[in-house]
Simulated assay, not measured.
Amino acid sequence: MSHAPPNPTLSPVIDRRLPYAQKLATRATSDIDLAVIHCTELPDLATAREFGERVHYDSGTGNSGHYYIDRDGRIERWVPEDHVAHHVRGWNTRSIGIELVHTGRWPDWYHSRRQVPTEPYPDVQIDALTALLRGLRESLPSLRWIAGHDDLDREQVAASDAPDQSVRRKIDPGPGFPWPRVVAASGLARLDPDSPLPFPAKSDE
């Protein structure tokens, strides 16, 4: 089924909750001040769904974002906003996770010579993202910041082809993501987790 979005320019969002969604911890939506942008680093939405349904924790839950946006602009909501999804370590309780279907480095995520994704983000997908963000700003008054997964998770892991080399565990949404366009259209400020000030806007440079 679908629910009417708060922003009239946003296409209907398909409500497709994960089987374990109700087992996730709850929160007040007034606690949400950050949107985290991811890319799936998987070939398609069906593969992302299969991964999202996998159980990884004793609570009977797994890893996923709240929203998924396909290449054609289709938006699905897998976890309601008042539940805490597992999508970015250390920031889950205050954030909304938005996943863009994108191949990223798939299927060789940690290969040392395959760390620069080449797939572009389609305009229709980015338009759907910015419309969703504007809608979320209306329904979540505390929402103020935006960040990429790579801004918040900077862990290095051993390269799969060269264990003596290190690569980023998470690089999404990647160097091809149009940050200036998304920040300008969404009205959110880019978060700088390294600043000594409380989450000032991050430069797009």
Score class of each variant (00 low, 15 high):
residue 6 P to Q: 12
residue 160 S to R: 04
residue 69 I to D: 04
residue 188 L to D: 08
residue 76 E to I: 12
residue 99 E to L: 13
residue 44 D to G: 05
residue 154 R to S: 13
residue 199 F to M: 10
residue 171 I to K: 09
residue 124 V to F: 01
residue 169 R to T: 06
residue 70 D to V: 10
residue 101 V to E: 04
residue 147 A to Y: 07
residue 66 H to D: 05
residue 60 G to A: 08
residue 184 A to E: 15
residue 22 Q to N: 10
residue 204 D to Y: 01
residue 90 G to N: 03
residue 151 D to F: 07
residue 111 H to K: 06
residue 14 I to A: 14
residue 193 P to M: 04
residue 4 A to I: 13
residue 141 P to L: 13
residue 204 D to G: 05
residue 126 I to A: 07
residue 147 A to V: 10
residue 204 D to L: 15
residue 97 G to N: 05
residue 27 R to D: 10
residue 189 A to R: 14
residue 198 P to F: 08
residue 100 L to H: 02
residue 70 D to F: 03
residue 151 D to I: 00
residue 192 D to Y: 01
residue 99 E to M: 15
residue 134 R to W: 05
residue 76 E to F: 06
residue 64 S to P: 04
residue 104 G to A: 03
residue 2 S to C: 08
residue 176 G to D: 12
residue 173 P to E: 10
residue 83 H to R: 15
residue 12 P to Q: 09
residue 31 D to N: 14
residue 144 R to C: 14
residue 68 Y to P: 00
residue 132 L to R: 08
residue 84 V to W: 04
residue 59 S to H: 01
residue 58 D to K: 11
residue 164 D to T: 14
residue 97 G to E: 01
residue 139 S to W: 00
residue 67 Y to A: 03
residue 189 A to Y: 07
residue 51 F to M: 08
residue 40 T to F: 10
residue 187 G to Q: 11
residue 177 F to W: 09
residue 25 A to K: 12
residue 170 K to W: 14
residue 65 G to D: 02
residue 115 Q to A: 07
residue 95 S to H: 01
residue 82 D to E: 15
residue 78 W to P: 05
residue 126 I to N: 02
residue 26 T to W: 01
residue 15 D to K: 12
residue 163 P to I: 11
residue 88 V to Y: 00
residue 45 L to E: 09
residue 73 G to Y: 12
residue 193 P to A: 11
residue 141 P to E: 11
residue 22 Q to Y: 12
residue 159 A to T: 06
residue 95 S to G: 02
residue 172 D to G: 13
residue 137 R to T: 13
residue 176 G to C: 11
residue 9 T to Q: 14
residue 178 P to M: 08
residue 147 A to S: 13
residue 170 K to S: 13
residue 137 R to E: 01
residue 27 R to T: 02
residue 142 S to T: 11
residue 13 V to K: 04
residue 118 T to F: 02
residue 81 E to W: 00
residue 52 G to A: 14
residue 63 N to T: 00
residue 21 A to V: 09
residue 141 P to D: 10
residue 54 R to F: 04
residue 133 L to Y: 06
residue 159 A to N: 14
residue 178 P to N: 05
residue 180 P to D: 12
residue 104 G to E: 01
residue 187 G to N: 09
residue 82 D to M: 01
residue 189 A to K: 01
residue 39 C to T: 14
residue 175 P to R: 06
residue 116 V to E: 12
residue 59 S to I: 05
residue 7 N to E: 15
residue 90 G to F: 06
residue 180 P to C: 08
residue 137 R to G: 14
residue 70 D to G: 12
residue 202 K to P: 00
residue 121 Y to F: 15
residue 166 S to F: 08
residue 82 D to C: 01
residue 179 W to F: 06
residue 112 S to Y: 05
residue 50 E to W: 04
residue 87 H to R: 01
residue 192 D to W: 11
residue 128 A to R: 06
residue 69 I to N: 00
residue 41 E to P: 07
residue 16 R to S: 14
residue 138 E to N: 11
residue 160 S to L: 11
residue 29 T to N: 11
residue 77 R to V: 01
residue 135 G to K: 08
residue 105 R to V: 00
residue 165 Q to C: 07
residue 66 H to T: 02
residue 175 P to V: 15
residue 133 L to K: 03
residue 120 P to W: 00
residue 203 S to E: 09
residue 152 L to F: 10
residue 82 D to T: 06
residue 93 T to G: 02
residue 19 P to I: 13
residue 84 V to P: 00
residue 205 E to L: 08
residue 48 A to Y: 14
residue 153 D to K: 10
residue 168 R to C: 13
residue 104 G to M: 06
